[in-house]
């Protein structure tokens, strides 16, 4: 009898020990998975600084950032054209994409009947799912010749074509985020406005939109982030020449496309190649800034 009880006890103990070790194992697997993301970010940041900073210092930070000529092959490393092009491209896409995206969101959230909204919404999510290389390809085959003909240019691959492609690419995220924000506006606000004799349209613009402003701001920041980091879709439509973005019809090169298009030609270990990492570092810093801005908006939203 005593023996039996003893056996049962050790059995229970064993089971508990097994359970504990499974528990321990699972917890650590979770932890390891969590670490992957953190470690990757850390690794990339450190790697970019280590591989990008020396070249930038050797060239001279001012010369590098504000030099208006880039000729990697011949050792002239000024990336101002790329920076300005990235700003112009992103700015242009935002300038067109935000009004179109926000108006679409308003339409979906407040005006469209259910069936139409479903159709448009699935089109928007399809748009979001199209790989960026496909945008580039279609842009190259359809958009570039159209731009060339429409404005009678020698080549249609220029800043304008890139802005158009970027605009279409950032639309889905702007629409989604803005629509969610607009839907979250309490309907009491809208009722109060209607009860004062405002029309439906006045109510949407003067009550719903202002009430959703932090969500709309978030949508804009997301769009900026997406546009400034995009390479694949615009490399084929922007002309890929290191020009200052003087006007819409200038063939240009972005921060992203500069790296992508020269990495294969620059000899390993050369200052040319290292300067490409410096460009990546600059791009990385911009995107960090945008993320900080995004976090600020999200925080404000929670507090407000």
């Amino acid at each position: 009898m005593a023996q039996d009880r003893h056996n049962a006890q050790t059995k229970a103990q064993k089971a508990r020990r097994l359970r504990d070790s499974v528990e321990w194992l699972v917890k650590n697997i979770f932890f390891l998975c969590g670490i992957v993301a953190v470690a990757s970010v850390l690794f990339i940041s450190v790697y970019l600084v280590i591989s990008g900073l020396p070249a930038m210092l050797e060239i001279g930070v001012t010369d590098f950032l504000f030099g208006d000529t880039w000729d990697g092959k011949n050792g002239v490393y000024g990336i101002l054209p790329f920076i300005l092009t990235s700003f112009a491209g992103t700015g242009g896409a935002i300038l067109i994409g935000v009004p179109v995206g926000v108006l679409t969101a308003m339409f979906l959230a407040k005006v469209a009947n259910h069936r139409l909204a479903v159709v448009i919404r699935s089109a928007v999510s399809l748009l979001a799912g199209i790989p960026s290389v496909v945008y580039g390809l279609v842009g190259m085959v359809v958009l570039v010749p159209t731009v060339q003909k429409a404005f009678n240019l020698s080549s249609g691959a220029n800043l304008l074509a890139a802005i158009v492609v970027l605009t279409v690419m950032i639309l889905p995220s702007i629409i989604n985020v803005a629509e969610t924000a607009l839907r979250a506006v309490p309907k009491e606000y809208e009722e109060a406005s209607l009860a004062l004799g405002a029309t439906h349209t006045e109510t949407i613009f003067r009550v719903s939109l202002p009430a959703a402003r932090s969500g709309v701001a978030t949508a804009i920041v997301l769009g900026v982030g997406r546009a400034i980091g995009e390479a694949m879709a615009i490399i084929m439509v922007s002309g890929n020449v290191a020009n200052m973005p003087e006007n819409l019809f200038t063939p240009v090169r972005f921060l992203t496309t500069a790296i992508a298009s020269e990495m294969n030609y620059a000899t390993v270990g050369s200052l040319w190649r290292e300067s490409l990492f410096s460009i990546a570092l600059v791009l990385f810093l911009f995107i960090m800034l945008i993320n900080v801005a995004l976090n600020l908006f999200v925080k404000n939203k929670k507090e407000g």
């Binding site: 009722e191 109060a192 004062l196 202002p210």
Partner: peptide
Amino acid sequence: VTWLRRHVGMVFQKPNPFPM
């Protein structure tokens, strides 16, 4: 209807001032 609602005003059960 906007003319009507201008002349016949409404105050709701739950206070609903605009976030302004």
